[in-house]
Amino acid sequence: MTFSTGFISADWEAPEELKELILSMSFDEFTVFPSHEIQRLTSENFGPCFIVIITDGGWQNIEEAIPFLTKISNLGHEIVIFLIKGGEYADRIEYIKRTPRLKIRNVVNPEADLHGLVLSETMKTYRPFLT
């Protein structure tokens, strides 16, 4: 799923090409966290999800998004937020960081650190199953 003011997401059964194209898109608009769409996807899924969020934290609907993330993490979904430094959203970022059960990974230098941090976190979940 990619999001800006709106979002584009792929359904579970969507072809790989579509999923990869969605991840390649950029909108350069405002930042509205797509809580309802994530809610829809998690509710359609059997079992807990591993939710990877890559963002600078400048969510304009943060008052709605954080309680939502807290709620679904309490349901057993694992949420990791890669918080990229650079935006001027200190109050929103503090709100995200204060939220229990959300795993926050601060990314100070995205060029140097982001890929390694994402690899490290995803491998904790998927390494035993990788072929």
Binding site: M1, P34, I38
Partner: peptide, 9 residues
């Protein structure tokens, strides 16, 4: 676990 990848663009 199923993955949902959410990318801020």
């Amino acid at each position: 676990p199923s993955t949902i990848t959410v990318l801020d663009v």
